[in-house]
Design a protein around this nucleic acid. Structure first.
Lengths: 338, 338
DNA sequence: GACGCGACTGATCGCGGTAACATTCCTGTA
DNA sequence: TACAGGAATGTTACCGCGATCAGTCGCGTC
């Protein structure tokens, strides 16, 4: 409460409680032996002064920074917050703490953010995707700390990796769609150069279609704006251009939901006339009039596994570092045998 | 690239380039006079080694930490990410950097997170809400750094504050609803003890209703789960219990959207038989079959204004610190004169 | 009574940088 | 030619804390 301007230090607490700085330090970190009386005295003084330890100094002195850099493309779609929450949950039981950096899907920004984060000398890095600039990869390698690349497993990780195969996800969805008898298939997605995982899903998707001699009859890509509204617009555009479409595969659930709402409004029979599928398994879908077919991206689990790997490695425990999770398909009400 | 284990220091670069550590430091920070030749030599050496400056040490030595602590309740609803993006956008033009902490709407967790963040000695704090534990308020005051409390302006800030009056938002919505002729009004919201802003909206809302002798005929609260689905369920429950309801005020757009979808499905005339309104003005709404009446919470602007205040104060520029933004109501298609 | 031992406490050093001041060197000018 | 003055570079002293090691004290043991 009594507080001038200059920030308090151990010395202030030490003077206030009549013991050495070292003892105060021990009390506040619960380390080493301190008598109960001294401990109480110190804690009282610290509380009274409103002392908050300086982790900057602590980290420098101890050469330990209990931060984990988490680098993701975006916070504004539901997918990464959920990964984050998985990470936080696991790290909560450790002394590690996540620090988030956002790249907006821009490789150069990713590089910059990574550089910034590494300059805080974190204990580990969790970073989305396997595609990074040359410089970023080099930094990750040179950092000498555990690195987990998440979300995607189609590629070579710098170190550890946890995710699903998006290529396979695309393939499986394509197979199911074909099995259900759809043939005039359209694809709606995000502008792809930015989003490697969406691209890989698309590649896997077309690959399987091609094997059956089927080609995507139409496609449309968007960027920015309300995904729900974009799904609507794009669906409308595609139907206008290609009225004979019988299935639409969306690169994410949000635009899929927009498309679903649009089709229902138009009185189109889903999935009779047109089938639909999205990707991600977002919670939102549960509130829709009909359940959109989708594929769970195992977001939360990716977060927890990644955090577990970091936590283990930080404590020098070796731990399996290449985890490919299996996304489960959910057919919902929009993908059925015709 | 050549890299053992121990992290590189200025000394390594200094040795590699044949100048003093101080000069290397100057080059890397672009500060002070350094000849072009020396500069190049140093930069080459630094790049070659893959040197990343240690901000921990730098911050300790310079007594400057260019971090801004941003403490918010949640990342999983659209509102805070948007505030964050406003903050980031403004801070991008400064040397400040946001660091996010999440409290899950729990006061004790907020206190803990705040303590953690302050222990990194940030240059400023942006924190959601005006309600904090006693200890948290004390810490904020004692920190001696600029503090901006955001989102809400119904109360006394520790220092600066940027937001809207949720009480007034509730009042205005109530007034419009009454003006449109609705009288059997229900309220659906989140469990309130956790969310002061939702509570204040509700208080303002009922206050205006009461002045016209109207009372909320039914109410229902939820916590957890998919908001869209919850909106659906709660709406169904309320209609069953109180079939004569003619308006439903939702404490957020997401549950409002769920309700809207439900009513449309049931073939109920919206807004003829039942009017609806939500709160927040989320982007999602643009993709709905009908535009839900709502009120913009000025999220992005709150973020930018708050960041501007911090940025100004950090540079010792005084700046107006009590900003109340005016949310604009948007009637959409679900609130109309009967 | 000397000794060992464990519990507790303190002194010193250095983590990797930066601020502030000191030094060197070069140039133009009186 | 001597010297002022600035540009370029180096030296020194910390920043606030924790690791390490060095005491101090009380007590049981032989």
């Amino acid at each position: 409460m009594t507080q001038k301007n200059r920030s308090l230090t151990l010395r202030d607490v030490s003077e206030a409680s009549g013991v050495s700085e070292m003892t105060v330090s021990r009390v506040l970190r619960n380390r080493g032996d301190v008598s109960a009386t001294t401990r109480d005295k110190v804690l009282m003084a610290a509380k009274e002064l409103g002392y908050v330890p300086n982790k900057i100094a602590g980290a420098l002195a101890s050469q330990r920074v209990n931060l984990v850099a988490v680098i993701i493309p975006s916070l504004s779609n539901m997918v990464f917050p959920e990964v984050l929450s998985g990470i936080s949950q696991v790290l909560e039981d450790t002394e590690l703490q996540p620090v988030v950096g956002v790249t907006d899907y821009l490789p150069e920004k990713e590089e910059k953010v990574l550089y910034e984060m590494l300059s805080w000398r974190p204990s580990g890095v969790i970073i989305a995707g396997l595609e990074h600039t040359e410089a970023a990869r080099t930094m990750l390698q040179a950092s000498g700390i555990p690195v987990v690349e998440i979300m995607d497993t189609d590629g070579d990780p710098v170190d550890a990796m946890v995710g699903i195969s998006h290529r396979r996800a695309g393939r499986e969805m394509a197979a199911e769609i074909l099995k259900a008898g759809y043939r005039k298939i359209a694809f709606l997605g995000t502008k792809m150069p930015l989003d490697h995982r969406a691209r890989k899903r698309f590649e896997g998707f077309t690959e399987v279609l091609a094997k059956s001699g089927v080609e995507v009859v139409d496609r449309e890509f968007y960027s920015g704006g309300s995904a729900l509204a974009k799904g609507r617009e794009m669906t409308e555009a595609v139907l206008e251009r290609s009225p004979d479409v019988d299935f639409i595969y969306y690169s994410n659930d949000m635009i899929g939901a927009g498309g679903l709402l649009y089709l229902l409004e138009k009185g189109i029979d889903v999935p009779g006339q047109i089938g639909l599928a999205g990707f991600n398994g977002v919670e939102l879908l549960q509130g829709l009039p009909r359940q959109l077919a989708t594929m769970d991206a195992c977001r939360r689990e990716i977060g927890t596994k990644a955090a577990e790997i970091i936590a283990a490695r930080v404590n020098d425990v070796e731990k399996d570092g290449q985890i490919t999770l299996a996304p489960t398909i959910s057919f919902g009400d929009t993908l059925r045998d015709r």
